[in-house]
Each structure stands twice: as C-alpha cells, then as structure tokens.
Nucleic acid binder design. Structure first.
Lengths: 111, 111
DNA sequence: ATATTATATAATTATATACTGATATGTTTA
DNA sequence: TAAACATATCAGTATATAATTATATAATAT
C-alpha cells in the first residue's frame, strides 16, 4: 500500500510537471505572471489560436496550475499559487546554471 | 530577434520541465536526492528495466538535470544542481495546496 | 428574439514519447 | 585472451499529445 501511495504521488507530480512541459502552456503561465487574464488577452499575448489556448487552459486547470473565475462573458485565469511562479523562476536559475556548465565545458575542451 | 530569443528560452524551459514530466524519470530524480548512484543501483531502487533506466538517464543528461561521472565500469549519476531538488520540493508544496483546494471545494459542493 | 462576442468541445491528423527485446561497447576479472 | 559485468544504443511497437477545423454553448448587446 505504501508502494501504491508513492507511485500515486509520483504520478501526480509527473502530471503537475507536464503542465509546464509544453511551450504553449509555458507561454500561457508566463503571461499570467503579470496577473489574471481572460482568454482573449491570453490569445493576444501568446499568439496561440483560441481553441488551442482553450485546450491548454483546460489542461492547466486539470493539473492545478491555474484557476478560473467567470465574470459575465469573460473567464479570468490566474496562477493557482505563488509557488507556481517560484517554479518558473527556479527553472530559469537551473537553466542558467546548466548553460554556464555547457559554456565552461566548451572552453575546457578547446584547450 | 527578441521574439526568437524569447521563443528559444521558452522551448529550453519546456525541455527542462519535460525531464520531470514522466513518472520513470521522476523516480530516478528522487532516488538521486539521497546522493549519487550508479545505473544498477538506480535500476534496483526504481524497478525500471536496465535499458529503460539508461534511456531516461540519457534524457535527463540531455536536458541538464543530472551529470554523469565514470569510475571504472560504473557510471555515477548525480543531480546537476541543488535547485533541481528545490524544484521537486516546491512541486510537492504546490500539489499539497492544490489537493487542499480540491478538498475544500468538495466540502462546499456538499452543502 | 436575434446577432455578436467569448469560450469550450469534438473529431481528425500528425508528431512525439515510452517501453521492450536484442545487441553493441567498454571495463574488470579470471 | 576470453568471460563476466555494467551500460548504452537501436529497431520496432504502442500510446500519448498537440494543433487545426468545425461547431456548440453561454453571456451580452441590439
């Protein structure tokens, strides 16, 4: 049962990370860093088609990264938690570190 | 050109997150939280087949989440940066928050 | 009531991804 | 030198995923 619990925890976590693992969804999340946006604003900011943006927003809601609030005919999406923003920032730091490692590696190999 | 730079940054970030977005790779990363491991140790800890573990390790190296160091016939893998561990921890916190939101939502809807 | 706007959903298609089994390559041991 | 061990790679297959087009649904304006 413990193995099952661990397995489920890992599956849930993988699902959460899958939310971040597509360029379209990432661009939506980064658009929301500046605050809540409706679908048309997200479409304009990301250059995605409206059905494509809607599909990805459904996926992001499903894995818990965004929440939706309807105001009349507009649906406003926002990041579900400040730590979603933290994950994006941390990823940038890891990427910078990885890029630095690759650069240093390149210099050493030229010696 | 700025648009291209942003697009590339987003693609790289998506690729980094793709490293986390599969249960097999996640279980490998979590195994490495305790320190460097060789392939056989990882295979034992994760119950993956050896070629499968090897494929995923190649993917994790490729997106910069782990580094490899050969010592004789053994290749030792480790997390490339402490922030990789931080990403895993932060994801747990987001998941806990999401789960709490879902639980509260369930209670409200039973009213 | 109808038209317009905003958004979600369905069906289809193309592409990407994950696993297995077989096998290749490199290191150590006998 | 050959066998054993550790690991990487390849080919094939099955499944998952992303985008598009068409369309449905809901809210607002006329």
């Amino acid at each position: 049962m413990l193995l099952t619990a661990q397995t489920n925890a890992i599956s849930l976590k993988a699902k959460l990370f899958r939310g971040f693992s597509d360029p379209s969804r990432l661009s939506i999340l980064e658009c929301l860093l500046d605050g809540p946006r409706n679908v048309s604003e997200i479409v304009a900011a990301t250059d995605l088609s409206q059905p494509n943006a809607s599909n990805h927003l459904a996926c992001l809601r499903d894995c818990g990264l965004v929440t939706a609030a309807q105001e009349g005919r507009y649906v406003y999406y926002r990041l579900s938690d400040d730590r979603v923003a933290n994950l994006l920032t941390l990823a940038d730091e890891v990427l910078a570190e990885v890029a630095r490692g690759v650069y240093e590696c390149t210099r050493v190999s030229q010696t």
